[in-house]
């Protein structure tokens, strides 16, 4: 029994807390290896206890007593209250953030949003601008107050470089063309004869 090494029990033996101190003592008297370990443990313990001890600053006790005197007994512990408030804030912020992400990530919400956009006047305006627009659209949109205030006068100037007065003058000439269409066959023949005579005379 005494042949079993006791290195694992030397620490407790050193402290007087070993379960079988008598057996360990007997083993140490016969086992040089465990005896050497025991001696090293003793030296280690002595070295540790000889380490310099830090001392409190001279006003340490005074500062403690000041703090004790200043601290009023409070029934309300603020630390849990602050922790609760912080948790509430974090949860609220997290919920708001999650909802924001939810709008972006929910397919149903995205589809509904897309339909709403597609039916909006601005979307109609965009499709008109991108594809087969007619000029009447601008008048309609101007009436609906979409900010595209294109008047007929502006539209004329934009397209022809003419003012409204120019267009009216052009319209007068158009009226003269209509008067040509209104000539009778006899008048047309007479006009053709007159033209041929003019060309022959040269």
């Amino acid at each position: 029994m005494n042949d079993r090494h006791v290195e694992a029990e030397l620490s407790a033996y050193l402290d007087g807390e070993a379960k079988e101190p008598a057996r360990i003592q007997r083993h140490l008297q016969t086992c040089p290896e465990c005896a050497r370990l025991h001696l090293e443990m003793l030296k280690l313990s002595a070295r540790l206890r000889a380490l310099p001890t830090p001392e409190a600053s001279p006003d340490f006790a005074g500062r403690v007593l000041d703090r004790v005197a200043q601290s009023k007994p409070s029934r309300l512990h603020w630390q849990p209250v602050f922790a609760l408030m912080a948790t509430g804030l974090v949860l609220t912020a997290g919920f708001a953030w999650f909802r924001g992400i939810g709008v972006q990530s929910s397919p149903g919400r995205v589809a509904a949003f897309g339909e709403a956009v597609a039916s909006s006047p601005m979307e109609q305006l965009a499709s008109e601008l991108a594809g087969d627009s007619d000029w009447g659209f601008y008048e309609d949109e101007a009436e609906r107050g979409l900010g595209l205030e294109v008047t007929h006068e502006d539209e004329t100037a934009l397209l022809t470089g003419m003012t409204l007065e120019d267009e009216e003058a052009y319209g007068d000439r158009g009226d003269s063309f209509e008067s040509i269409d209104a000539l009778s066959r006899e008048e047309m023949d007479a006009l053709a004869v007159a033209l041929e005579t003019y060309l022959e005379e040269g």
């Binding site: 694992a8 029990e9 030397l10 620490s11 407790a12 402290d15 807390e17 090293e40 443990m41 030296k43 280690l44 313990s45 070295r47 540790l48």
Partner: peptide, 23 residues
């Protein structure tokens, strides 16, 4: 407590022994 204390002391002892000197 017993096992932690034994392990802590053993770690210190081995380290000081490795430093090569009687302590």
């Amino acid at each position: 407590v017993r096992s932690r204390l034994a392990r802590a002391r053993e770690q210190l002892r081995v380290h000081l022994e490795a430093l090569g000197g009687e302590f």
